Amino acid sequence: MVESTRVRSKRLSFSGKKTLSSFMQVNIASLRQSGKLRTSETYRATLNSFMKFMDGKDVLLSNMDAELMMGYETYLKAQGASMNTVSFYMRILRATYNRAVDKGVIRQRFPFKHVYTGVEKTVKRAISFKVIRQLKEMDLSHSQSMEFARDMFMFSFYTRGMSFVDMAFLKKTDLNNGMLTYRRKKTGQLLSIRWEKCMQDIVDKYPGNFSTYLLPIIIHIRKDERLQYKNSICLVNRRLKEIGKKLGLVHPLTMYVARHSWASVARGKHIPLSVISEGMGHDSEKTTLIYLAALDTTVIDKANMVVLREFL
């Protein structure tokens, strides 16, 4: 009797949440409560995008069908979204829909069977070691914000492509006995990096940082730390893009380029894939291969010249 009452109560708790928006709001709140803030933000962004497509009108989960999702895909393309962006939103919506199916809220109708949910090969983001050296040696003393952006890029490169969110939340106590140890926000994996002089030089460059954090990204402890991080990454990437233009780069320079560049330079030094993968904190070598998939075209051209040498 008690068991049946619990089941009935659980069903009732979902009875008012059969619209996509309501159901996603529950998932977003659950993600935030479990500390998965970045994931909750991606779910929020996906919901906002879909609601714009729907002109603010909610949709019943049971009314989500292949035709509706194909219409959303067409809408995203018309907005100039890349296929990877389309796939990103579709996969989050599919995960939400499947969760509703698992909970018995709706019956499976496979609404995502005709839309793109794969991963396209992206434009190569890495820059060469030569360009990284040029970046390091640039005189940016005229702009404090540009100089700071460059230094954060270099710190990421020095630390095996550490992500900006991990850099932001590094604590001074994470540095002990010449080793920097931190846990990746994305995967929870514990990584250790030997502390080098080039890393210390950047830390020393910004004295007066009296917070518990190692880098001056989150400065005001009593204010929203997550908001400080997000504001900082936006400003840093904006300044890096300006620097990239000064360097004559074709593609935008961002913090993410530092991660790709470390992997690319390491590969160019003939460091084994397994070592690169472990150094970057990847769950598998397949993830690392995504970073290294687009080889420098000059390398490919040289290889082709060797093949065609006797015909030239």
Rank of each mutant, 00 (worst) to 15 (best):
D201P: 13
L289Q: 13
T96Q: 04
L93D: 01
G279R: 10
G244N: 06
K77P: 06
I28N: 00
N231G: 08
A78Q: 15
H142I: 05
L12Q: 11
N63L: 07
R239K: 14
L190H: 05
F311I: 13
T117P: 00
E67L: 14
K124L: 13
A294Q: 14
R109I: 08
N209I: 01
R267K: 06
K241R: 14
L93W: 01
Q108M: 03
P252L: 03
T297A: 12
P207E: 04
S128K: 14
I106Q: 06
S34M: 13
Y75V: 02
T117W: 02
A100E: 00
A303S: 12
T288H: 12
F50A: 02
R11F: 13
K230F: 12
A45R: 10
G56Q: 03
S40V: 07
F153H: 13
T159V: 15
L253A: 08
E137W: 04
M1E: 12
E196T: 10
V257E: 03
R44H: 06
Q228N: 11
N48K: 14
L289I: 06
L240N: 11
M70L: 11
F112T: 00
K124C: 08
K121A: 14
P272N: 11
Q144Y: 09
R184Q: 15
H282V: 09
T19H: 01
G71L: 01
T96E: 01
R133D: 04
Y89W: 12
Q33L: 08
L12Y: 13
L170A: 12
A294R: 07
E196N: 10
L180N: 14
N48A: 09
E41S: 02
M179K: 15
V250M: 10
K185Y: 07
G161E: 09
N84Q: 08
P111T: 00
V250G: 02
M179G: 09
L191C: 11
